[in-house]
Design a protein around this nucleic acid. Structure first.
Lengths: 126, 126
DNA sequence: TTAAATGCAAAGCATTTGCCGTCGC
DNA sequence: GCGACGGCAAATGCTTTGCATTTAA
């Protein structure tokens, strides 16, 4: 509704990565200096509650965000660069569902993150 | 080596749940009042670095710990009670390994937690 | 006009750390 | 005796919040 919110929303929809709050703040500031960090935090929470963005935990102690899409996807974090790749797997989802059921639970959420290092490619880098 | 460390170690080996630092502190204090929270934090970090305990994230913002066992197991957290169940699945582990490989990575770590609610049993509770 | 949103600075949490006294070996 | 360890309180990093002011509708 407000200008700041609009800017933050734009920043989020333009992002194709997984920025943390500080980074969203940085990008929003570029569009409109004068947005405060507190406002970004408040907006992120609001967007999250509204189901517009999803919080992801990449293991660095800060909350990162991505636009909420319909699909249930997971993340693979490059432990050397911090970059985040995404993947989906109906197999994994199905097995997890079954495991929860077997344990007597209805699955209401899944947090899955893989951490990996790039496999050496033939003969290029390093 | 020191008394405090011994007490904390005992608390950890006696625990069959997944206490957070505050809880370890509470239990250690029962054995020996006069242990400080900072000491517990330092001990936990040391035990973790030594591979004696493992830190697990149950989603409440605090670090919880469990004794390190050899097996690669995962957790299912009851969102209503906060209790943690454990499970292992060679299937899941294998698929995740393959997924990482397919994405060009060597898997160096996995963080998997399921969140669920107890399924209504026939006609008992509630 | 009036509730909702913002900025700023202060507060909150979990966790870490500097400093100095103490304890184990 | 000396280096590792523990206690305390201050510091840290991320996030939230109280309050007075501004803004959207």
């Amino acid at each position: 509704m407000t200008e700041q919110r609009r800017v933050i929303a734009r920043v989020l929809s333009e992002a194709d990565d997984h920025p943390d709050v500080e980074e969203v703040y940085r990008r929003a500031s570029a569009h409109d200096a004068g947005i405060s960090l507190a406002t970004v935090y408040r907006a992120m929470r609001m967007f999250e509650d509204a189901g517009i963005v999803e919080r992801i935990d990449v293991g660095d102690g800060r909350a990162h965000y991505e636009e909420a899409r319909g699909d249930q996807h997971h993340h693979l974090i490059d432990v050397e660069t911090g970059s985040v790749a995404e993947f989906t797997s109906a197999d994994v989802d199905a097995i997890l569902q079954r495991i929860a059921r077997d344990l007597g639970y209805s699955l209401v959420g899944t947090r899955l993150a893989l951490f990996g290092v790039r496999r050496d490619k033939p003969a290029e880098e390093r």
